[in-house]
Amino acid sequence: MTWITACSVDDIDPEDVLRFDHGGRTYAIYRDLKGEFFATDGLCSHEQVHLCDGLVMGDQIECPKHNGRFNYKTGAAMRAPVCINLKTWPTRVSDDVVEIEVI
């Protein structure tokens, strides 16, 4: 596991999401209303749509294609048509830089 730089803290508004690609994978980086950062796989587990175009509401991300929802803090599938949980990734902030720990 390796910590890598994903973005600056200012790159993501509160209650929003950003796409981050690294090593042939795509991730979604989230910032909640408290200013904490989270990361999940970047593609919806239902139809492989990029979640970065979706809507963040509270602790949930809504897929832009079919409106399925996940809790982005736990990865749990919350609303059909998504049934399979998202993989989450550890995050940390260091010197205003958001890092995620990836394989």
């Binding site: 239902h46 139809e47 399925g68 059909a80 048509p81």
Partner: peptide, 10 residues
């Protein structure tokens, strides 16, 4: 129909 409509959008 919830699922068929998801497919309609895919």
């Amino acid at each position: 129909w919830r699922w068929s409509h998801a497919r309609h959008h895919t």
